[in-house]
Simulated assay, not measured.
Amino acid sequence: MKHVSVVEARSHFSALLTEVEAGEEIAITRHGKVVARLAPEHPRSAADLFRALAADGGWDFEAPEDLPAEAVASWDD
């Protein structure tokens, strides 16, 4: 998470909003203490990150072959 002072946030607010739109979370500090956070409206999740790749057909998954059944030990052994 990026930390910026109130003065810097005021000076670069538009650029900070662009970063937030890209998924970045930004902490606003006053005298070294966090007083506010800028965060995306919808938090990013793994599904969000991979959605575009999946939509483009970028994955070619194949199911693994079934393994042969294993013998199960009996209570008599």
Rank of each mutant, 00 (worst) to 15 (best):
56 D>W: 12
25 E>F: 03
58 G>N: 07
54 A>D: 12
49 L>Y: 12
30 R>K: 14
71 A>S: 06
11 S>W: 06
27 A>I: 02
54 A>F: 05
57 G>M: 12
12 H>L: 07
29 T>N: 10
64 P>F: 03
7 V>K: 07
27 A>M: 04
75 W>Q: 07
13 F>H: 03
12 H>P: 00
26 I>V: 13
67 L>T: 09
51 R>G: 01
26 I>P: 01
24 E>R: 01
39 A>N: 02
46 A>Q: 08
58 G>W: 08
57 G>E: 15
76 D>V: 10
53 L>Y: 12
30 R>G: 03
20 V>E: 05
16 L>N: 03
71 A>T: 08
41 E>C: 06
77 D>I: 00
37 R>H: 06
15 A>P: 03
41 E>S: 11
32 G>A: 03
31 H>E: 15
60 D>I: 08
60 D>F: 11
51 R>Q: 02
57 G>N: 14
63 A>S: 12
31 H>D: 15
51 R>T: 04
58 G>F: 08
45 S>C: 08
49 L>M: 14
40 P>M: 15
1 M>N: 14
51 R>F: 01
24 E>N: 01
55 A>L: 13
43 P>V: 01
56 D>K: 13
41 E>M: 11
56 D>A: 15
3 H>I: 10
27 A>V: 02
30 R>P: 01
47 A>Q: 13
52 A>M: 08
28 I>W: 07
76 D>C: 08
71 A>L: 10
36 A>P: 02
38 L>S: 00
66 D>L: 15
60 D>A: 13
55 A>P: 04
68 P>Q: 10
50 F>M: 10
17 L>Y: 09
18 T>L: 11
10 R>H: 12
36 A>H: 06
45 S>H: 09
75 W>H: 06
17 L>G: 02
45 S>R: 14
32 G>S: 05
51 R>K: 03
15 A>T: 09
68 P>L: 09
48 D>T: 14
65 E>A: 12
74 S>R: 14
62 E>P: 00
10 R>D: 13
77 D>T: 00
69 A>D: 14
52 A>Y: 05
18 T>Q: 13
22 A>Y: 00
75 W>N: 03
26 I>D: 02
73 A>F: 07
51 R>S: 01
36 A>D: 10
2 K>H: 08
36 A>R: 04
33 K>V: 01
31 H>I: 09
70 E>K: 05
29 T>P: 08
14 S>R: 10
28 I>H: 05
46 A>C: 04
